[in-house]
Design a protein around this nucleic acid. Sequence first.
RNA 1: GGUCCCGUGGUGAAGUCAGGAGUUCACGCCGGCCUGUCAAGCCGGAGGUCGCGGGUUCAAAUCCCGUCGGGACCGCCA
Length: 544
Amino acid sequence: MDLRDHSGLIQCVVDNDVDVRSEYVVRITGVVRARPEGTENEQLSTGAIEIGECEVEVLREAEPPPFPVDARADEVDEGLRLQYRYLDLRRERMQGNLRVRARVNSAVRSAMEDQGFIEVETPMLVPSTPEGAREFLVPSRKEPGACYALPQSPQLFKQLLMVSGVDRYYQIARCLRDEDLRADRQYEFMQLDMEMSFVDQDDVLDAVSAAVLAAAEAATGDRPPPIERITWHEAMERFGVDKPDLRFGMELVELTDVFSATQFKAFADAPSIKAIRVDSDGARVDLATLGRNQLDRLTERAQKLGAKGLVWMKVTADGFDSPVAKFLNESELAAIRDRTGAAPGDLVLIVADEWATTCEVLGQLRNDLGRPPVHDGPYRYVWVVDFPLFVGVDRLTGAPKPGHHPFTMPHPDDLDRLESEPLSVRSRAYDLVLNGWELGSGSIRIHDPALQRRVFAALGVTDEEADRKFGFFLNPFRFGAPPHGGFAFGLDRLVAILSGEENIREVIAFPKTQSGSDPMTNAPRTVEPAQLAELGLRVVPPPN
RNA sequence: GGUCCCGUGGUGAAGUCAGGAGUUCACGCCGGCCUGUCAAGCCGGAGGUCGCGGGUUCAAAUCCCGUCGGGACCGCCA
């Protein structure tokens, strides 16, 4: 019979007649010995040995489990696995994931402590704040009608800890957001949250890198190379997204200048023209069988993403097979071939539009056509720096909207354009990206009140409004605030990728379903009227 | 708020498009046999409200409408 614990399986040889069935809890006393010749099992890590002369004591019988407690349960309906999560977690895959997670947490703590950070816990019952994600509310019993909120992140408190002179803070922090769930999003999730004083951007990036690299090494056994950096602008130019997946090529190719004098109307006035070359070998779709239908679907996809259209060109031995080839002259066609490096069998996709649209549409098509599953190696970490300070403008007020949050430090080289050309101003905000997944983001914060006023002014926020909305946060700075900055990254996402999982539920012991319920505990549940009454609450019947 | 996919004995699947008796396969379960095997082998057996409700039809797992549950995605996640 097979004996299983968290570390694996071992075969036991039982000679006497005991009624032991699947999943019974037993105590076995015996002798570890080599297996007799010819009975070794190379499939099993313990396949060379066995426990012989076993005395078996049944500590607890077990009913047959509702699904096989082994790798076959990978195929079982996830709702059933979650209903019996305690059985699901007995399996090797889940035990492994829990242990990778524990090692990552431990490595992150050590790396932060080694760099002089101290862990400070921050409250779970916090005030509700107007900006950002929808919050979970906790009604107050002593003050009916008033609510606490559960923290979306410890943002407020960690910056106040800098005011408090903590200097280097970190926390493995639970964050809660009442937004719709996804494969990479749960209501509650864990972050490595950190903040440090008297530093610039490089210091923060170095400190976080040390923790991430230590975590990766703890999880996989391999220490990744130093994390490379690219600017947001370069990420958009080359990959068309702000979270580039560096594991594959298909980079965007600049063609704007090629068509400066073109006769082709769709290209003539376009501010930005770029292309991607879909390699006939590297693509995740079979280009050879790509018919007119699929090409039309690509065009629809591009239009849905905001492009006016999509030019496709199949590369043949003697030219291009494309509905627009006849509108382009020889030198234009030659430039397309040279710039993209197109070879027969490839597909070239061209978008001509505003710079941002051109980049974003091609970047999305690049991901659609070439991106491997997120957990496929190699692991490519990248810092994306110099994010724009503002992203777009508010439709109602016309004022710029903050790219990160309104306390983000503008890039010092761009300060003179804060009033004249706010949308061109870069910031000291940065993201950490792994295989095209955003792991986290952070920024250097504004600690100078004059500069904060300028940024609020650029955002169209008056002094009174700033004081009303953010005063509780900014007033403490009047008592002295050091230059500071920080970062937070999602541990669930990191652990999922490092465990080879494409869903963070697989690395969370007791996750929620996509609809936010827990099939094991039946949370959320309706509560007793008396509980509501104590909180001064009454449930309104749902509208029909 | 929206789009798409899934729901068939305890588990996984086939059957659904093209309506005709709860049919099939594998695993598990129960009983027996065998056994130095290892997701063992042989024999026998039990087990189903085809998620739920309604409609169409002589007849519904199958078609239609609704609903519940699960999943992927868009919106959302400063």
